[in-house]
């Protein structure tokens, strides 16, 4: 028997019926046509490819159109180990994606470096340089986990407001869509980070 939602979503009173309807339509369209960027970094990419194939079929969620160009992509699935050599390229590709854009960090490596965290050449999480919306733990996560993460992202998109102070950054003219690209230093990546990596 279907359960009734005990806490129905109440829209803020200052937004009219028309705007909220438009907002729902806009979010509905966006969440059901997320086009991922076609790039894989390591073994998690194999699971991502499996998720796009017929058995798991990411097309059920409208996210099967993997784009080879960042200019046409909405979603970056960081699938695998981000080495320090690859990190500037990942950030640059993210910067080249048009807004609204979202990031899924897939697997332990993309989240925090994973088993290679203490390696000299592995980035301790891609969220040091670009904002991550959804974290999918696992090593590697199964395709079902990626689909679960995609559904979580869809819920997140559906809840985004068009106006107001808590609107997403792509609707805010003041919020920059570009993040600083790290540079190769003599021993490590140099450049501003969004956060400090956690200590072991």
């Amino acid at each position: 028997m279907p359960q009734l939602n005990p806490q129905p979503q109440i829209k803020p009173a200052h937004e009219g019926v028309i705007l909220t309807t438009v907002e729902d339509l806009y979010n509905w369209g966006r969440k059901n046509s997320l086009w991922p960027l076609q790039f894989g970094l390591a073994c998690c990419a194999i699971e991502m490819i499996a998720a796009s194939m017929a058995r798991f079929d990411i097309a059920r969620f409208g996210a099967e159109v993997f784009r080879p160009s960042p200019r046409q992509a909405d979603l970056m699935i960081v699938s695998g180990t981000v080495t320090k050599k690859m990190a500037p390229q990942v950030v640059r590709l993210f910067n080249q994606m048009p807004e609204p854009k979202y990031v899924i960090a897939m697997g332990a490596c993309a989240i925090c470096g994973g088993p290679f965290r203490d390696g000299y050449n592995v980035l301790r999480g891609i969220d040091l340089y670009i904002p991550v919306d959804i974290y999918i733990p696992g090593c590697p996560p199964r395709p079902e986990a990626l689909l679960e993460g995609l559904m979580k992202l869809q819920q997140k998109i559906a809840a985004q407001r068009l106006t107001g102070p808590d609107r997403p950054p792509h609707l805010n003219p003041g919020a920059s869509g570009e993040f600083p690209v790290p540079q190769y230093g003599p021993h490590d990546l140099v450049g501003p980070q969004l956060a400090k990596p956690a200590k072991n």
Binding site: R92, N95, E99, L162, L171, P173, G177, E178, V181
Partner: peptide, 19 residues
Amino acid sequence: FSPRKPGPVKNAIYECGLD
């Protein structure tokens, strides 16, 4: 609803991630 945000990296010619 969609402010334009061009930038040097975003407007770069190549889309392969490399300069």
